[in-house]
């Protein structure tokens, strides 16, 4: 089960995911913002995994965070969770599906889907994204998915089928690289397919260029 594998990974030394840090504690598991790891005694304590959903909902300025991979998770909290199941649930509220996606990819059960395939299956208001050119796509992804400000996921899909995302910095498509730039023992935070926000941004790009 995913929770058992997560427990094994923690025993093996993995202690980070995205902006999060986690560790075993005397009462179960502790989950926190990595940047707070040395000041947890000043953090507000939460005890329900559902609190993670509310913490992850807004950034420190109160702005809504529809995309959880954006590196703007608020600080100043710590989740004290009694068991691995609650830790898994909380991680899924911070970074939905990240652990399951990594495990499925590692076992060969999930493959990247190229951007062209994602765009070509769109209908309705997003059908027009099929007209995005390769150059537009590369520029868009480079900007909209950059790790320093837009999304911490590691991109494994290319523009066309069977083409790696070699237009990106090598680090952005390497699952062993910590996208926060801190070289932690981090669980890979993979992007196997363009998200709806990128599809929506592709629509904006096509619409602008056709004016």
């Amino acid at each position: 089960m995913i929770k058992d594998e997560l427990a094994r990974l923690i025993t093996d030394g993995y202690n980070a995911l995205g902006e999060l840090g986690f560790a075993e504690s005397s009462t179960g598991y502790r989950l926190y913002h990595w940047a707070d790891r040395n000041s947890l005694n000043q953090a507000r304590i939460y005890r329900s995994p559902k609190d993670a959903r509310e913490i992850a909902k807004y950034d420190s300025s109160g702005a809504y965070r529809p995309l959880k991979g954006v590196p703007n998770l608020p600080r100043g909290w710590v989740l004290e969770l009694p068991n691995i199941n609650d830790l898994k649930t909380a991680l899924d509220f911070f970074y939905p599906g990240a652990v399951a996606t990594w495990l499925a990819f590692r076992e060969g059960k999930a493959q990247p889907v190229c951007l062209r395939q994602t765009l070509n299956r769109q209908t309705g208001m997003y059908r027009v994204t099929g007209k995005l050119t390769d150059d537009q796509a590369q520029s868009l992804v480079k900007e909209a998915c950059r790790s320093d400000s837009r999304c911490l996921r590691t991109i494994l899909w290319g523009i066309e089928a069977d083409h790696p995302p070699d237009f990106l910095p090598a680090s952005k498509s390497d699952p062993t690289v910590d996208q926060t730039g801190q070289s932690r023992t981090t669980l890979p935070f993979l992007c196997l397919e363009a998200c709806n926000l990128l599809v929506a941004a592709a629509r904006t790009t096509v619409k602008k260029s056709s004016r």
Binding site: P66, L67, D92, G97, T101, N196
Partner: peptide, 14 residues
């Protein structure tokens, strides 16, 4: 329009 997306969720289901 949010996460987990429809493309991701079945990977979470055991």
């Amino acid at each position: 329009k949010e996460e987990p997306s429809l493309r991701e969720v079945l990977r979470m289901v055991e």
